[in-house]
Write a protein that binds this DNA or RNA. Structure first.
Length: 933
RNA sequence: GCCCCCGUAGCCCAACAGGCAGAGGCAGCCCCCUUAAAAGGGGUCGAGUGCCGGUUCGAAUCCGGUCGGGGGCACCA
């Protein structure tokens, strides 16, 4: 039983006592407080700083499972390593605490979401504190704190009061645009003088330029959630990421952020970031920049403009297709079919008008999912013909739902010879195919999309695709038929939600319905108390519903009398709230200056922690760790805000996160019984490769850790059973940080045994007394030690904690074997120091026992002595024709000839060579010898 | 369908820039301590790197193909 264990063995109970003690000590002494250059947190600051950040956690009511802290511990080890080496390290953690779960919980219980959210935060802090994370707890922030969201609102207003000057390539204050209109430097849309426009008219004009604007464009309406969502929150199959409800495109008046103005910079600046290629690729793909041309096709008196990335194929355009919703469809549609109309083109209708109406009706009944699953090409002829500007040919104009209104111009020129979709449509409708690129020999496919010389293309013939594109664009411009252009998939960011638990907009509407930004002095606009937190939700399938936000029912709050400069008047507040991403768009800036009441961040502090460090450096957090699931959403929005703030001179960094690292996921096995019901995974036992629960065989699955799979393991359980240091050591030993892997509780004991051995090498398990000796370690030990020091330095700096841990185990195993009477002090000390980033509590305890007076948090960290890293002698394996035949040991500085001589002198090698003259003699210095005969 | 990443002992993982396939942990096996037990101590076994081919004196590593797993995008003109 445990009471028979030596009383000072490093058990879970002892570890727990040590850990609590040091957690209290660190908190009381502010051990992890990082000084700022100026302001309330000012202190002496070394030039060498490091800002390490975890992705903003949402404080879920379920608490942490062992997968969550992987990244948190990873950043902590990195921060501790650098802190011990003398850098000023900023590491903390706050909470992204607005969001749907708290609101839904509030709806079902009637409790204020603030209450449950704060309780969850309290529990979260308790859990992460127990892990020994070295956070500067003065810098904890929470997005729901009015002192935080006042600045979220403030940034919103800065963006609202800005426009994008495409000529300057940056955002500028809206006043400067007003000045341009006022002076006549820039013409108003209808040519009237600025002074002649009414207030509402002026605001209407500015709305077209503001970086935040009100839009009536189609948005993603989710009746099942009662709110609209952004494009990024819609899944590939046209449903809401949250709740998996159907999404409908509806025209609703909503706030939009003009992120498209930054499309080029958001793509181009990816090259300046130290990010995983995968994430960069996802962002590039999402922004979707493609170079091409807009080409105008005459249709009667009208012009239909199409977008194409292959203007070089213009000579092969044999028909034109408009999206069914395209506004010109009704204008150009012929009154009657031509006499010889192909029966496949009419949809069985009597005339084009009827065919179009029927086709549109059918298309509107199809969900996005239907459209994607069924790739059979459908469409109807409009009865109209367009003129191909290159060939002069009259080509039919169709409508078809494979052309999307939302991309490009909503119209295409169809080139079946070079585009498979057009080929499919042409085949179904009996349309001609003209190849304009010579397919490679032996090509037997349909549309040819590869590289080749132009054919059937008049003055383009013989040119490669790139030259042909350039030539035709020049020609289109000369002839006035079109121009080269760049197209993006990225759309503006829908920025309003019909929810309660989010940041209110700092905007009111006057009697004309014009949006007016509140002055800074009126911030924060606080959330009002309401009786019912729920947005009105609807039948998820009912598209004909309109949002009804909870704030609209807070009538006393909505109707407000304010003096905005021209006397007290009644205004209406905006009843939307900001999306959940708003708070996380700028939180690294607030970590830097969490208590600043005068500014969102003091410029000097921003420059120190987040500014560029060298010419061309975009600035930003030095290491940002989180899951890859935010590759597009959060990371794109945050980059956008940062760039706006940079343009406006509010910050010096052009990018928020200089270096990004995606940690892997910890997954876990789950088990189902014969009914397919999940059973408690912790009760399952393995026998001969089969799994049993309660004596009955169960089936093993593998997946995310979660309540529904009944396979959750919590850090609390691990701390209880093994201690936080053991848990940290194990998580970091499981593999490289970026690799996903299965959780295995049974393996944790390995980490605990290691710490027990370290403890035992330094401390008498019976008495608790230090058993470190003053003996001088032998040469072999010193070599092992310094090799470990050199390796551990490199591993920590490169996030290779698994190998760093292995090197520490190796060194400790050496001590165990070599010094049964206790570790020599000169080895024990660096061992403890090197252990500290991974297992800070036990390291502090041992450091104190060794006589350390100051916490080990700020070092020292051992430095390897070069002399012990170079070997005196080297053992070379000697290969003959690639097979190892013998080994020779020579002096490390032996010349190649000496190595050769030694190799040939070896009996076994000589036998293998057999007296033949070597054809080749390879000596890889320090590595091996290979003799080719 | 297109793009990206990954396949090394029973399991999790190492291997600098191509150079003896093994650092570390779990499990297994043996021994010690123990009335007994293990979250104790000591020791030990174990793969030729998914498969096929190429380059090379030499390939886990580079190249081509193939199979398997994971992820992203998907009628974006």
């Amino acid at each position: 039983m445990t009471d028979e264990q030596p009383s000072h063995r490093y058990s879970a109970a002892l570890a727990g006592r040590i850990e609590r003690r040091w957690q209290d000590h660190w908190e009381q002494h502010g051990t992890y407080h990082a000084p700022n250059p100026v302001g309330p947190l000012a202190g002496p600051v070394p030039e060498d700083k490091l800002f390490v950040q975890d992705m903003f956690p949402y404080p879920s009511g379920a608490g942490l499972h062992v997968g969550h802290p992987l990244g948190f511990i990873g950043t902590d080890v990195f921060a501790r390593y650098h802190r011990m080496n003398g850098r000023n390290v900023l590491h903390t953690m706050g909470f992204d605490a607005f969001g749907l779960p708290a609101e839904q919980y509030a709806v079902s219980t009637g409790q204020h979401p603030r209450k449950t959210t704060e309780e969850n935060i309290g529990n979260y802090i308790r859990q992460i504190r127990r892990l020994g994370l070295g956070h500067d707890e003065r810098r904890r922030i929470s997005t729901i704190d009015p002192e935080y969201y006042r600045w979220t609102q403030w940034i919103f207003l800065r963006i609202f009061n800005s426009w994008y000057d495409a000529d300057a390539g940056k955002a500028r204050p809206i006043d400067e645009l007003v000045a341009q209109f006022d002076s006549g430097e820039r013409a108003t849309p209808d040519g009237r003088a600025w002074a002649e426009l009414s207030h509402a008219e002026r605001q209407g004009v500015l709305n077209e330029h503001r970086l935040v604007y009100l839009s009536d464009a189609p948005v993603n309406w989710v009746p099942g959630l009662g709110t609209v969502i952004s494009n990024e929150e819609v899944t590939a199959d046209g449903r809401s990421e949250r709740g998996n409800f159907p999404v409908f495109r509806r025209n609703l008046r909503q706030w939009m952020m003009r992120i498209t103005a930054y499309a080029d910079r958001l793509i181009d600046d990816l090259d300046r970031l130290d990010w995983p290629d995968k994430v960069k690729a996802m962002q590039r793909n999402w922004i979707g920049r493609s170079n091409g041309a807009r080409v105008r096709f005459g249709v009667g008196a009208q012009q239909v403009e199409v977008f194409t990335t292959r203007p070089d194929t213009l000579f092969g355009a044999t028909y034109v297709v408009l999206a069914p919703e395209h506004p010109l469809v009704d204008v150009i549609a012929a009154a009657a079919w031509p006499s010889d109309v192909d029966s496949r083109w009419t949809g069985g209708a009597a005339d084009p008008g009827a065919a179009i109406a029927a086709y549109r009706r059918a298309a509107s009944l199809k969900s996005d999912l239907d459209r994607q699953e069924n790739k059979e090409k459908t469409g109807v002829f409009t009865g109209a013909y367009a003129t191909n500007p290159a060939t002069g040919a009259q080509i039919p104009v169709f409508i078809a739902d494979y052309v999307l209104m939302g991309y490009g111009t909503g119209a295409i020129m169809a080139v079946p010879g070079q585009d498979q979709r057009d080929w499919d449509f042409a085949t179904a409708f009996g349309l001609p195919v003209v190849r304009t690129v010579q397919p490679t020999a032996g090509f037997d496919g349909e549309a040819f999309t590869g590289e080749g010389p132009a054919i059937n293309s008049g003055f383009l013939d013989g040119l490669g695709i790139t030259e042909a594109k350039a030539r035709i664009i020049d020609w289109l411009q000369e002839q006035g038929h079109g121009h080269g252009t760049i197209q993006y998939k990225l759309r503006d960011w829908l920025f309003s939600r019909q929810r309660y638990w989010g940041e209110p907009f700092p905007v009111v509407y006057d009697a004309d319905g014009t949006a007016i930004a509140l002055p800074e002095s009126m911030l924060p606009v606080e959330l009002p108390e309401v009786d019912d937190y729920s947005p009105k939700t609807f039948d998820p399938e009912d598209a004909d519903t309109v949002p009804s936000p909870p704030l609209s029912r807070a009538t006393e709050w909505v109707e407000v009398e304010l003096d905005l400069g021209d006397g007290p008047k009644t205004y209406r507040r905006d009843t939307n709230t900001m999306p959940n991403w708003a708070g996380s768009c700028w939180y690294q800036l607030r970590y830097v200056d969490p208590t600043d009441g005068a500014r969102f961040v003091e410029p000097e502090n921003e420059r120190y922690w987040l500014g560029p460090r060298s010419p061309g450096d975009p600035g930003g957090v030095d290491l940002y760790i989180g899951g890859v699931e935010h590759a597009v959403l959060h990371l794109l929005y945050a980059r956008f805000w940062q760039k706006v703030l940079f343009d406006l001179g509010e910050v010096t960094g052009e990018e928020p996160y200089r270096r990004l690292f995606n940690q892997g996921f910890i997954q876990a096995f789950a088990y189902t019984d014969e009914r397919g019901v999940y059973v408690d995974a912790s009760e399952v036992v393995e026998k001969d490769g089969k799994f049993f629960y309660d004596g009955k065989e169960v089936r093993q699955e593998y997946g995310k850790m979660g309540k529904s799979l009944r396979n959750v393991v919590t850090p609390d359980q691990m701390c209880e059973t093994y201690g936080a240091d053991t848990f940290r050591m194990y998580e970091m030993s499981m593999g490289p940080m970026d690799v996903s892997r299965p959780w295995a509780t049974k393996d944790v004991v390995g980490a605990q045994r290691f710490l027990q051995r370290v403890w035992r090498n330094l401390v008498d398990e019976e008495t608790g007394a230090l058993r470190v000796t003053e003996v001088e370690p032998d040469e072999t030990t010193l070599r092992a030690l310094h090799k470990a020091i050199a390796g551990v330095h490199e591993d920590y700096a490169n996030l290779r904690y698994n190998t760093a841990g292995a090197k520490l185990i190796e060194l400790n195993n050496h001590i165990t074997k070599t010094f049964p009477d206790g570790a020599p002090r000169s080895v024990a000390v660096p061992l403890v120091q090197m252990l500290a980033p991974l297992c800070p509590h036990i390291a502090e305890e041992l450091w104190e026992k060794l006589g350390g007076v100051e916490s080990l948090a700020h070092g020292p960290f051992p430095v390897a002595v070069e002399r012990y890293l170079v070997e005196d002698t080297v053992e070379y394996p000697v290969q003959v024709n690639g097979k190892v035949r013998g080994r020779v040991t020579v002096a490390a500085d032996a010349s190649q000839d000496e190595v050769k001589a030694a190799a040939l002198a070896d009996e076994k090698v000589a036998a293998a060579v057999g007296g033949a003259t070597p054809k080749k003699f390879i000596v890889v210095p320090g590595r091996l010898v290979n003799i080719v005969v």
